[in-house]
Amino acid sequence: MPKVIVEVMPKEVLLDPAGKATARALQRFGDGEITDVRIGKRFEITIEGEITPKLLDHIAEVAKDVLSNDVIEDVLSIRVAD
């Protein structure tokens, strides 16, 4: 069955405590190349039937209204999985 991938990230300006803690952990490895980590979300949405432009519009709508909160997050991408 076809899948649509939606990626949501916290806004750049906001503090991301989980990302910051992960970055500090990663900095214990390597030679200090890693300076920052930001953690977002990836939704894999399974579709029955054909993926039409109308369906993608619908997914864009729920991505904006439900999967993300535009006060704190941005919808980064919506694409059909290979």
């Binding site: 405590p17 909160n69 704190i72």
Partner: peptide
């Protein structure tokens, strides 16, 4: 209005 996010001290 606005939003509520994780406490700044984590």
């Amino acid at each position: 209005a606005g939003g509520l996010i994780r406490n700044d001290h984590g």
